[in-house]
C-alpha cells in the first residue's frame, strides 16, 4: 500500500506502516520531517515559496508555512520538536518560462531551508536542484527515504539516526549529507 502525496498535500503519522511517495517532483520540493525518538514522520509536497496569505487553506503548499504547520501536527502525535530532522528533495529547474518571476524550484528550496533554520530544524540530507524530475519515497519496512530519478541511481536521504534495522541491502547508492550540493 502506497500513499501518494499530491501537490500541496501532506501526511503525518506515528509508527507509519505504509509507504509514502511523491511521484514526479519537478520544481516542487518534497519535505520530510522525522522525529526518531517518538517515530513520528511528516511528509509534504511544497509547490510555491511564499503563501499569498498568512493563514492559507493549504499550508503544506508553501515553503514559508509548511514547516510550522507540520511541526504542530507532529507535536499533536507526541513528537519532541527539538529532535526533529529534515530531508529535502526536488526544487529542480525544469522549463525555462519567461514572465514567471525567477526560478520557482530554487526559491522553493530556499524558502523551505530558511523556514527550517528559523525553527531550529537541521537539514540532514537533501537531493535538490539540477534539471531532472525526482520521485521521493519513504519505505515503511526499512524506514528509508529514497530519491529516484529517471536514468540516475537512487539516493538514500534518511540519516542513520532515523533508520531502523540496518542499512539498505540491495546495493544502491547511499548518501548522507549535511552539506547542500
Amino acid at each position: 500500500m502506497i500513499r501518494s502525496i499530491g501537490l500541496g498535500e501532506y501526511a503525518v503519522g506515528r509508527d507509519v506502516q505504509e509507504d509514502w511517495a511523491i511521484y514526479g517532483l519537478g520544481s516542487c520540493v518534497g519535505l520530510i520531517l522525522c522525529e526518531p525518538t517518538t517515530r513520528v514522520l511528516a511528509m509534504a509536497h511544497v509547490v510555491l515559496p511564499v503563501s499569498p496569505s498568512p493563514d492559507p487553506e493549504q499550508p503544506a503548499r508553501y515553503g514559508d508555512t509548511v514547516v510550522p504547520f507540520l511541526l504542530e501536527e507532529m507535536k499533536k502525535l507526541g513528537a519532541v520538536t527539538e529532535h526533529v530532522m529534515a530531508q529535502l528533495a526536488g526544487g529542480a529547474r525544469m522549463f525555462e518560462i519567461s514572465g514567471v518571476a525567477g526560478d520557482i524550484g530554487r526559491r522553493n528550496v530556499e524558502s523551505v531551508r530558511s523556514s527550517l533554520a528559523r525553527h531550529g530544524v537541521p537539514v540532514t540530507a537533501e537531493e535538490v536542484g539540477g534539471a531532472s524530475g525526482r520521485t521521493l519515497r519513504w519505505h515503511a519496512k526499512t524506514r528509508l527515504a529514497v530519491v529516484s530519478r529517471f536514468g540516475a541511481p537512487d539516493v538514500i536521504l534518511t540519516p542513520d539516526r532515523c533508520r531502523v534495522g540496518g542499512s539498505w541491502t540491495d546495493g544502491r547508492v547511499v548518501k548522507n549529507s549535511t552539506e547542500p550540493r
Partner: peptide, 23 residues
Amino acid sequence: PQVFRDMVGALMGSLAAVFVAEG
C-alpha cells in the same frame, strides 16, 4: 521547443506550479 526526457509528473507538476502562482 524545449525537449525533455523525464517523468511526466515532474513536468506537469512544474507547470501546475506556474498556474498556482498565477492564482
